[in-house]
């Protein structure tokens, strides 16, 4: 189908700040990326890099104040989300775009049965009557591997992995076109993580859902995504097809992330961590944000911000030395 190649979601020059006292936190700085139908893009980066802020700005659920979108356009199927009214956004949230939050323990309402929580979204976004919505909710529970007679139970009666599956059932109930998965498995044990990742992958294939996967786990990225954007201090510093990025990482930060992983450097007893810690987001360096930690830093890096360069087709990197031998 020719439609499969069409750009489905487009984020252009997204810029978000948080105001805190007199200081402004530069959370997202001119982030742009595209997503095709049925594809998964992974946003990878450390705590505070701005990954969740990017996802929340797409849904427009950032609290204002302190958050403020300074600029940028977000287009979903040709419709600009940033210019929609709040009523129109309500229709999109949970309908066309759904989000899986990081912590299943706090994402569910403890005073409502899980069934009612799934039904709530279904009634809002569809023409179902109550019975039809309940049936659909039960169907969704079965789909994620929870027996439908647990429909009437409360979140505390479920374990962490099951709660996360309830959250996934809720997110997928209205057949969203776009799924924002914010660290969907970080709070879970590895064996449960494996179950949940398989589930998300299968459902995605079944419904051809596009996904933005936010994670700091490169293993999860390798298994789940098609393209990868590495986020550092609110900027995308490297962007490529998954295979290309894993085989040929180009930015020193991306390389550092791989070097920090135990088990990657077989036979070598010392890890190669990235020195220092991420920059203060209220006072970002003038030049490259990674320069203070970069082992290859040059004067130019400190003076001016490097541009995004295409070093091979589809592989973009924000580094002066990108594509050159280091």
């Amino acid at each position: 189908m020719s439609k499969a190649d069409e750009v489905f979601l487009k984020v252009e020059d997204l810029e978000v700040i948080y105001t805190s006292g007199k200081k402004n936190v530069q959370a997202v700085n001119k982030v742009s990326f595209e997503l095709k139908k049925g594809q998964t893009i992974a946003l990878v980066g450390e705590t505070g890099a701005g990954k969740t802020t990017i996802a929340k700005s797409i849904l427009r659920i950032l609290p204002n104040p302190p958050a403020k979108m300074l600029g940028g356009r977000i287009t979903l199927e040709g419709r600009e989300l940033t210019s929609l009214s709040e009523e129109e956004m309500l229709d999109i949230r949970g309908g066309k775009i759904a989000m899986i939050f990081q912590d299943p323990m706090t994402a569910l309402n403890p005073l409502m049965t899980v069934g009612d929580q799934i039904v709530e979204g279904l009634l809002l976004h569809n023409d179902y009557d109550k019975d039809a919505a309940e049936n659909r909710a039960k169907e969704m529970l079965e789909l994620v591997g929870i027996p439908k007679d647990r429909f009437v139970e409360y979140p505390y009666q479920f374990s962490g992995g099951m709660k996360q599956r309830v959250v996934i059932a809720m997110a997928l109930a209205c057949n969203p076109l776009l799924l924002l998965a914010d660290e969907p498995t970080t709070a879970l044990d590895v064996t449960i993580q494996a179950q949940v990742l398989d589930l998300i992958r299968n459902l995605k294939e079944k419904y051809n859902t596009s996904m933005i996967l936010i994670t700091h786990d490169l293993g999860v990225v390798a298994e789940t995504s098609d393209t990868v954007a590495v986020v550092y201090a609110g900027e995308i510093i490297e962007y490529a097809d998954k295979r290309e990025l894993f085989i040929n990482p180009c930015h020193p930060y991306t390389n550092g992330l791989f070097g920090s992983l135990p088990g990657m450097t077989e036979g070598e007893s010392r890890l190669k961590p990235i020195a220092g810690s991420p920059p203060d987001p209220t006072d970002l360096p003038k030049g490259c944000a990674f320069a203070p930690r970069c082992p290859y830093v040059m004067d130019e890096c400190i003076e001016s911000k490097p541009d995004m360069k295409e070093i091979s087709p589809g592989h973009f990197c924000r580094c002066i030395k990108a594509g050159k031998e280091i």
Partner: peptide, 11 residues
Amino acid sequence: LDVSIQAQVLN
């Protein structure tokens, strides 16, 4: 801890 910091602490 984040991976880059995790590696520092492990070392």
